[in-house]
């Protein structure tokens, strides 16, 4: 796992979560800027996958390989599914779903770090 990317993902997703919950509180829809931020997080997560593959190819191993891999896969799908479910309805709660997805990714990144070393 690449530490710098993990920290970057954590920062972006926590900011995203705060932003989305603020929008939900003000009852505003999810706009392009929010989706762009989610896109940045997703790009970083993809980079993390590539980074992990490179590291493993170089001979490094996760402390718990199976758990690490599952967390990695989950971190990739959480935001797209969350965004899909959030955009399916125009309501406060639906908007908040994307915030939950962002929080889930932040937790998954923390778990990634734990299962890597």
């Amino acid at each position: 796992m690449v530490r710098v990317i993990a920290v970057a993902v954590a920062v972006v997703t926590l900011v995203l979560a705060a932003w989305v919950f603020f929008l939900a509180w003000r009852n505003r829809p999810i706009g392009r800027a929010v989706l762009a931020a989610a896109g940045v997080a997703e790009a970083l997560l993809l980079a993390q996958v590539v980074g992990a593959i490179v590291l493993v190819a170089q001979g490094e191993r996760a402390a718990e390989p199976l758990t690490f891999t599952l967390y990695l896969v989950a971190s990739l799908v959480a935001l797209p599914i969350g965004a899909w479910w959030a955009l399916g309805e125009r309501s406060r709660s639906a908007t908040a779903v994307l915030g939950v997805a962002a929080l889930v990714v932040a937790i998954l990144v923390e778990r990634l770090a734990q299962t890597w070393s």
Partner: peptide, 17 residues
């Protein structure tokens, strides 16, 4: 699965997985 139910379903799905 509408309104607050949408959020509830989302959290339930996370726990299910």
């Amino acid at each position: 699965a509408s309104g607050p139910g949408r959020l509830l379903v989302a959290v339930y799905a996370v726990f299910a997985l």
